[in-house]
Amino acid sequence: MNSRTLLTAHGVEWQAAGRTILSRLDQEVIAGECLAIVGPNGAGKTTLLRLLVGLLEPSSGSLSWGETPYSDFSRRQLAQRIAYVPQSHPLRIPLTVEQMVLLGRYPYLSALRVAPRESDFQAVAKALELAGIEALRQRPLGELSGGERQSVFIASALAQEAELMVLDEPTTHLDPLHQREIASLLARLNRQAGLSVVVATHDLNFASLLADRILALRNGAVVACETPAEMLREERLAEIFEAPFSVVRGGERPMTLLEWER
């Protein structure tokens, strides 16, 4: 793995209504890596993602892409580098799969051209292929299962041809089978297609299997940023989540289980 730095957050802080949601954070995202962000509800995961994507401007500190600060990019230019898959989408999107994926080309489209360019259609075809949903191409989004819908949103983000994809809890609301499908899709994109991924999740096993590094947040502050083997230890998890976990399988990518009181 090369160790080129894609994104640097330097002293990033975010406050809303006088309350600090995220306090001084220094973090890098390395090209080709998969960084998972975990933490209890309200830890500031979504806020961090929105800062990384550039949807929020930090109250203090700075973000840069390579050497260039975010403020030097237009929104479209930033979208050509970073694709975002938000946690929730409108319930009813009246589009077909192909139309939805084509909208991933928005950062490249010109209002003055009647039709998109050939390169746009090629990018759409490639995104559909990478996401493995070519068969769904003409289907309306409303007819798809939750897992298929999530694949379409990821494909739409792939059509952005960005180097980094930021996903907010992509497996919430999905049944185990579809959770596995999305996880293997992301693994494939990360390891075979070389896409850098930042993903926020509550699913520690998902993070363990997928991530090169896990960033743990608590009350808006970084607890640690370590490899899965380092992070997924019982004491560490108890500290982050204030809940008892047992590690049921050790090694490079440990599996954990939340203990229940009976």
Binding site: Y84, P86, P94
Partner: peptide, 17 residues
């Protein structure tokens, strides 16, 4: 295009520019 993209939600639309 902006109107089309808005069909997919404001958050996504803004993230794409």
């Amino acid at each position: 295009w902006d109107l089309n993209l808005l069909l997919t939600g404001e958050e996504l639309a803004v993230s794409r520019g």
